[in-house]
Write a protein that binds this DNA or RNA. Structure first.
Ligand code: NAD
Ligand code: NAD
Lengths: 214, 214
DNA sequence: GAAATTCCGTTACAAAATTCACAAACCAAG
DNA sequence: CTTGGTTTGTGAATTTTGTAACGGAATTTC
C-alpha cells in the first residue's frame, strides 16, 4: 500500500499497533463492522485521531457504515509492512532470549526467529525450541543463507555494541535492542530500543505524582 | 523534589529514563561533568530538549560548567520518584514471568518483586529465584502484608483482565501489563502497556519505507 | 424514492512539543 | 578585580501533533 504523505508521526505507528490488537479482539468476538467512534473508545483515543491516522495510508472505511473489521486489519498490516514474514536473528540466548525463542506469537505475527546466536562455548550446539544455538561468528553466513533482516539483541548491555557490530557487518537491515545500552549503527540501519524500565519509571512517577495531587 | 509545572509531557518522562541510562554510562567511564550538548549527542536528542526537560523539575546545572554527572542522576531519580524502592507483585509465572524474576536488575533499580502469583496448581509452591509461587487468591493478603504497590501482568492475554481485577481488588496502585490485551481499571490506577510487537512493527515499517525511498 | 441518519475523509483550527536565541551566571586566567 | 570564554535556564518562534467541524457518500426508514 502506497503511503500518501511524506512523514508519518511515530505516534501514529504506535497507535496502529494498538488498533490491530483491538480489532483482532473485535474479530474474535464476531464483530464484522466497527465505527471509528467505537474503535476509539476501545483504544482510549479520539475518533478523529483514528480517521486521521488511517488517512495517511488510504481510504479504508465506508461512509455511513464504518470499517469492515477484517478488511481494516488487512489494510493496516499492509500499511505497516507486516503483510509478509520477516526473518529475525536473535543474539544472546540467556533468560530473556529464551523467553522470546519460546514465544509462539512471534511466528504467528510474522516475525520468525530463524537463527539463535551466542558466544558462550557451553551454549553453542544446544537446542532451544527446535533451534540450534550457533556461534556469533557465523552471523554473516547465516544472514545470507537464511535471508535474515531484523536482529534482536538480548546480550548483556556491555556486549550490545559488539552484537550490533556483528549484525550490521552481516548485512542486517534493522535492530531491536533489549539491552539497556545505547549502540551506534550506520544511519541506514533502523534501530529500536526496548527498555522495560521506561515503563516502571513512568509508573513510579505517576503513582507518586497522583498521590501528591490529593 | 517538587514539580514546578502542572503537566509534564509523557515524552519527557521517557527521555529522562534515557538520560539516566547514558549518565550511568558516563559515570562508569569516570566522567564527572557533562554539558547538555554532550549528553544530547549521546542520547540523540537536541540539547535544548534536555535543558527544558530538566527545567520541569528544577535547576540542576551550573552555568559555564555543565551538570555534575552523579548529582544529575540523583536529581533525575528523585524527580521520577525512583529514589526509593517499589515493591512489586508479578502475576503469571510463565516464560516471560520467569525471565523477569531472574533478572537481577529489577532489584538493583529499586523495583523489588516480592510476590510471584499464578493460578496453575502445578506451579503453586514451586520456588523460583528464592521465591515461592503463591496462589493468585492470596493477592489481597500479600499486598497488605508486603506493601506491594505495582503489579506486573505476565499472564496470557485472555487472563489479563482477571489478573488486573485481582490486583485492583487487592489495593495495588499501578499496573504494568505485558500481555497484548487492553484491560479496564478504575482511573486512579496507573496502567502501562508493554507490547513488544510495537517495536517490531515500527522496525518493519521503517525498513520497508526506507527501501521504497531509494 | 425521498428524507433522515450515520459516519468517513478532509480541512481548518487549537494545543502541545520542540527548537532557537540570548541574557544571566559561572569559572579561569591574568 | 576584570575580562573572555562557556554553558545554563527560559521566553519566543517554529514545528508538529491532536481535535473539532463539516461536506458528502452510503444506508436505512417510511
Ligand atoms: N531477563 C529479563 O527479564 C530482562 C528484562 C529487561 C532487560 N533485559 C536485558 O536483556 C539482556 C539479556 O538479559 P538476560 O537476563 O537474558 O541475560 P543473560 O545473562 O541471561 O543472557 C545473556 C546472553 O548473552 C550471551 N552473550 C554475551 N555476549 C554475547 C555476544 N557478544 N554475542 C552473542 N551472545 C552474547 C551470553 O552468553 C548469555 O547467554 C540484558 O541486557 C538485560 O539487561 C533482560
Ligand atoms: N514469552 C515472551 O517472550 C513474551 C513476549 C511478549 C509478550 N509476552 C506476553 O506475556 C504473557 C506471558 O507470556 P508467557 O510466554 O510467559 O506465557 P506462559 O503461558 O508461559 O505463562 C503464562 C502464565 O500465566 C499463568 N496464569 C494464567 N492465568 C492466570 C491468572 N488468572 N492468574 C495468575 N496466573 C495466571 C499461567 O499458569 C502461566 O504460568 C503473554 O500474554 C504473552 O503474550 C510474552
Amino acid at each position: 500500500m502506497a503511503v500518501k504523505s511524506e512523514h508519518i508521526p511515530k505516534a501514529t505507528i504506535a497507535r496502529l499497533a494498538t488498533y490491530i490488537q483491538v480489532l483482532s479482539e473485535f474479530k474474535r468476538e464476531g464483530t464484522d463492522v466497527v465505527s471509528s467512534e467505537r474503535l476509539a473508545e476501545a483504544c482510549s483515543v479520539n475518533s478523529s485521531q483514528i480517521r486521521k491516522d488511517l488517512a495517511y495510508f488510504g481510504e479504508f472505511g465506508v461512509r455511513g457504515v464504518g470499517y469492515y473489521v477484517q478488511d481494516l486489519i488487512t489494510s493496516i498490516k499492509r500499511s505497516l509492512g507486516i503483510d509478509r514474514a520477516w526473518n529475525c536473528a536473535l543474539v544472546g540466548v540467556g533468560n530473556l532470549g529464551r523467553a522470546l525463542l519460546r514465544h509462539r506469537e512471534f511466528t504467528r505475527k510474522g516475525f520468525i526467529i530463524r537463527g539463535a546466536f551466542d558466544c558462550d562455548p557451553y551454549k553453542i550446539g544446544e537446542m532451544v525450541e527446535g533451534m540450534e544455538i550457533v556461534c556469533s561468528r557465523q552471523l554473516p553466513a547465516k544472514v545470507k543463507e537464511l535471508g535474515l533482516e531484523i536482529g534482536i539483541i538480548t546480550t548483556p548491555p556491555e556486549r550490545a555494541q559488539r552484537a550490533a557490530n556483528y549484525l550490521v557487518g552481516a548485512g542486517i537491515k534493522g535492530i531491536i535492542n533489549f539491552a539497556p545500552a545505547r549502540v551506534a549503527v550506520p544511519k541506514h540501519i533502523h534501530l529500536e530500543y526496548v527498555d522495560f524500565f521506561h515503563y516502571f519509571y513512568a509508573a513510579a512517577f505517576h503513582i507518586r505524582f497522583d498521590e501528591q495531587a490529593d
